[in-house]
Design a protein around this nucleic acid. Sequence first.
DNA 1: TGTTGCGGGCGAT
DNA 2: ATCGCCCGCAACA
Length: 440
Amino acid sequence: MSGKILTGSGLTMEREDVEKDNREVLSWDINDIKLPQNVTRTDWFQEWPDSYVKHVYSSEDRSAQRHLSSWAMRNTNNHNSRILKKSCLGVVVCGRDCSTAEGRKIYLRPAICDKARQKQQRRCCPNCSGPLKLIPCRGHGGFPVTNFWRHDGRFIFFQSKGEHDHPRPETKLEAEARRAMKKVRMASASGSLKVTGSRGSQPRPGEAQSQAGLPLTWSFQEGVQLPGSYGGPVIANAAPQSSLNDCFSCPKRSHDVGETAALAESLPAGETRKVSGRRPCHGAGAPVSPAPGGLVDHDHAQVRQRQAALERSPLSDSCHPFPLAGCPCDFFPPLSPLEPFPQHTPLEPPVTHAAGHPTWPSPGAELYEERGPADFHGYVPSPTGPGPQQDPTMLGYGAHPALQYPLPPRGYKWDLDEDMMYTGLDAFNNEMLLNLCPFR
DNA sequence: TGTTGCGGGCGAT
DNA sequence: ATCGCCCGCAACA
């Protein structure tokens, strides 16, 4: 039983050792005193972890470092500094259960901050101006699904408990993009008003404009990947183009993997958190490109994710406390040709190897018990698990059709007045959607 | 203004 | 003891 096996990288290992390691790597629980450190394969960051899954991410994975999730997760105090616990806030939907002209539902991202969330719920549906309703997550025995994060050595362990019983909200980036767009609209509108002096019956910026029709809220979860240009001017700074190395600006590379591991091992269990910290630098001082050990560039995944979100960027947000003339659905551009988009495909390949070569599907991947979520009236969660996959190394920007879409001319639509902004954006979105939706 | 993480505190189990 | 949750605080964007 101790036959030698040849790995893709030419390394040989004792088969029994590998099996033992695999068992160990897969049997851990976030509460274990000691987590496996002989992980040979780390996972690609999972944007929509669901059900009772566990993942081991590289400590260099920026998304993991930030404990990100596209679900709206809020910090929950579990009185354990070693393990960060987050619980799901659910999703904000239209109290009237309205649908857009395309038959899409409104799934907004609940604000994480309690006050912001309360405020959010006082707003109204961007589609029909009806009241918004928060659908709490009850996927874990009647309680919210909980996610646990724990930094240990060179890895970041993630464990999810519960299965989301609600549709997916827009992602964090989409929500941010929407807010950013809202600001731009407001600024643009007020500027336009000042300049033109009058818009007749145009509502004031804070009122009427709100729902400018941007196909946002409802389509996010469909995972449409629009061309990267869209978020350009508006959220240019938020755009990840430069983020591949954005953590390298960190002056002090005190979080090198090796250092982290050493530190983690030398500290009481409860101190591991310190290693990862929560701000920009976290543990990512290390280079992003493929590391010597074969580590995959997790930043690329995040970049793609962020970029895609920005690209999808919907933009309408707030609502009026009362229905506006011409308000509701006419703000939504005729995305007509778009039937519900095929499920959102994880932007990052699910699994990769911390050491060694990628293989698809990755052996042992099934051990992470991933499974498809339930269906929510047209809402089709995307598989979080490794579906048909691509070699991660093949997923560069250029590999994604959507990312190859040409950028719009600089200044496109941003200096337009309200109407132009709406129509311009809509038209632009439509065009992009029509031309780019790679899934159709 | 909103996000994120920390941690004190409380009530329920 | 554990868990869910509330709250306020701080740092940051």
